[in-house]
Structures are given as structure tokens and as C-alpha cells.
Design a protein around this nucleic acid. Sequence first.
DNA 1: CACATATTTCAGCTTACTTTGAAGCTACTG
DNA 2: CAGTAGCTTCAAAGTAAGCTGAAATATGTG
Lengths: 131, 131
Amino acid sequence: MGRTAGRILGWLMICDPPHQSAAELRTNLGASSGSISTQVRLLEQLGLVERVTFSGSRASFYQLPDHVWSRSMDAELVRIVQMRALAEAGSAVIPNIRPERVTELEEVAKFFAAEWPGLLERLHQRVEVKP
Amino acid sequence: MGRTAGRILGWLMICDPPHQSAAELRTNLGASSGSISTQVRLLEQLGLVERVTFSGSRASFYQLPDHVWSRSMDAELVRIVQMRALAEAGSAVIPNIRPERVTELEEVAKFFAAEWPGLLERLHQRVEVKP
DNA sequence: CACATATTTCAGCTTACTTTGAAGCTACTG
DNA sequence: CAGTAGCTTCAAAGTAAGCTGAAATATGTG
């Protein structure tokens, strides 16, 4: 993630109101319109920003989705599963000496793939369901 | 981590013998001596490669440490704690509307800081203590 | 302890990514 | 449905990171 994307996220965490137009982002961050457009789209694809509109204004506004941080941990599971698939592909090249150089990676990936869903469930319980 | 660092790791997972000299890495990966020197040092600092020597040869050899993959998950705890510290610094700028934009990040960081040590313990049990 | 071998350093090159700003396009308001 | 505010695109410039290879430095064998 680029510099501007990070600054957009930071600003969207503290701005008032929580939704900002591209022009507001441009002004407050000192970035160009093109940069805002590109980076906001990137963040939208990553699920870290959502776009909202209001009738009466033709501008789009950008804001952080609810529970954005705990939800972003969900994406980690995708990467863990990709890692497990990669590690499993390694079974084709297991060396004779110290084969655990390859097999251990698979075990680690399997471990996290098994543990992560439960962890996420507890995280969401804790963060999204306030006591 | 750069391209060459990744290729070094990959080669060290499957090479025979498991320890390789800089010259061997250079030959097998088609990289320059400078690149090998720099990237091997980077990997050493990250704890992903260790350097060994043998009397009778003046060359250094590089190899993967034991349990390198499960141990590399330990480093994640450091990053989680750094994230918690950053998130706690955010308490100085909590906005009035939708304050959870900032506070949720802190809760997520705290959650992982609390959970990670136990997770690591079970990982190491599972991977390093073969049944 | 001389000296050949191995390693590190570093300036310049290459490559990949980011930003800018203006032109073109979209779509909403009135 | 015309006009225009706002968004996207894109080529060019800027920036950052990695690689190379030769020169400088370090190492430890014999």
C-alpha cells in the first residue's frame, strides 16, 4: 500500500464528518486528484474504504466501513490458505536430507489454517458485540 | 523482502547439502556476488538464515536454522506489540463521531497481543515436538 | 605471517512503482 | 435533457528499491 493510501486511511479515522469527498481528501492531504482517485479505488478493492453518495450532491464520499479493522483480519485467512496451498505444492520437492525444511512450512500453514477461523470468531465477538 | 532474498530461501529449502557457500548461491541462482552478500545479510538479520563455517575452508556457508518457519511466527508478536503501541497512541486523537474508528484498532491489537503467545506455544508443541 | 581466497562496499544502472495535472468522460441536478 | 461538477484516465516525470561488478577490505590457511 502506497504512501497516499496510508494517509487517506489515517485521515478517514479522525476526520469530521467521517465521510469525505475526493476534493476534501485532496485539500486535507495535499495530494493530486489523480492520486486520490487511484488510491481510493485501491482501498475500496481491499475493503478498507467504502463509497457513499447523497442525493443533492453529485460527489462521492469515502468513509471507513464499520468494524474495518477486525474485518481486515478476515483477509489474513485467505493468505494463510494460499500459503498452505503453496506449502503443499512443496511436497513434490522434499529433499532427502533435512526434509523438514519443506515439510515444516506445510505444518505451520496447516496449523494456522485450522486455528484462524476460531480466532476470528472470538475477535469479532469481543470487538463487535460490546458487553 | 526482495526477489533475490526469496530465491535464496527457496534454494536453501531444497539444496543438497543444506549449507551453501556464497559462490554456490551465486552459481545456482545466477545472481551477482554483491547481491548475494547483501541479501544473505538481510536474511541473517531476520533470523531466516544462519551462517556456519568449517575449518579447512575459509568460506562461509549459509543454511536455514532449525524450525525456521515456526520460529518466524514469533517475530509476528513483535509487530503486534508495535501495532498495539501505535493504536494506543491514537487515544490522543479519538474523534467525537464514530470514535470506534480509532478505538477498534486498539482493541484488535490488544486481542492479538493477548492471544498470540498461547497460539505460538501450541504451534511449537505441534511442530517441534514430533509425536 | 604472507598471500590467495572470500566477502563487503558502493557508484551507477535498471526496473518498478507513485504522483501529477490536464484532457476526456460520466452522470446528476435543476 | 442541457449544462456542468466531479471522476477517471493516462503519459510524463519523479522516487524508491534492487542489482551489478569492480575495487577495497577482511579472513584464516598453510
